[in-house]
Structures are given as structure tokens and as C-alpha cells.
Amino acid sequence: MSGLFPGFLILSAAMFSVGAAGVLVRRNPLVVFMCIELMLNSANLALITYARYTHTMAGQVFALIVIAVAASEVVVGLALITGVYRSGRHLDLDELSEMSE
């Protein structure tokens, strides 16, 4: 069973980096949010993998907390996106640059 340990971690790293690349590459805010979910999920996988192989419970508890964080992040983020949409602006992250000026 412990032979699969590197496999889980490498899958987690691959998913995290695909998600990070997506956050940097895509310009649709909805897709960027999904990529952030992807990164949180891969962190969960790493947490649960370590919990399983070190015979501890902390990883599973914090994976549960990460799921709660991800859910509330989605709620607030989607409320922001609908707010931006209602103000009549195009949903493109490159055009939403008022904050940086």
C-alpha cells in the first residue's frame, strides 16, 4: 500500500500546477474560480494522503475545514462576479483593472 504514496503526492502536485497555470492563463473569472477550486482540491488530496500514511487524523480534519473555506469562497466570489456583470461590464479579467490603477 505504501507504494502508492508517491503516486498520490505526484497527482496532487500535477493537479495543483494545472490549476495554477489555469489561474494565470485564463481570463474568464468563472474559469479562474474553478481553477482555484482545483488547487484547493489537490491540497485536500495531499492532506488526506499524509493523514493516511502518518496514521494521524489532523489531515482529515483540516481537509474538512478546507472544504468549508472553498464553499464560502465560491459563495462570495460568485456574488462578486454577478455584481460585476450587473454593473454592465464585460466578464474579462484583463478589462477589470480599476483596482490596480
Partner: peptide, 11 residues
């Protein structure tokens, strides 16, 4: 899982 992750970015 990996193909799903790729699909999220490339769709």
C-alpha cells in the same frame, strides 16, 4: 482526475 483538471483549463 488529471484529465478532468486539464479539461477545466482547456475547455
Amino acid at each position: 482526475a488529471f484529465l478532468g483538471a486539464i479539461g477545466v483549463v482547456l475547455s
